[in-house]
Amino acid sequence: MSQYLYIGLMLVGIYGLLSQKNIIKLILSLNILELGLNLFIISTGYSGGNKAPIIVLGNEGGYVDPLPQAIVLTAIVIGLGVTAVALMLARNIYKKYGTYEIDEIRGDDDD
């Protein structure tokens, strides 16, 4: 059932990316989109009642699928890098234009 929540988070992120005009809110939307996607990929590996994929000798089997978790681990790290660069770009934009609103940046052409 929880996959609907994750898809919902993803859609919230897409809506935020399309409708917001504040750079910080855009970065937050990107992060929400990414979070929803990551959780959804993990939920594809889940199968009812199984344990975390850590081997206990003598009691093997019955684990959830470890592959989506390993792939999402990569995606989280890439997301961290993207967010760091995006925040630094936002800081530079604020330094230059004195605002985070895209509309106000566009109207300002005295540079």
Binding site: P53, I54, Y63, P66, Q69, A70, T74
Partner: peptide, 9 residues
Amino acid sequence: SANIVTSVV
């Protein structure tokens, strides 16, 4: 490795 995710990664 006991943690299968670690052994994959």
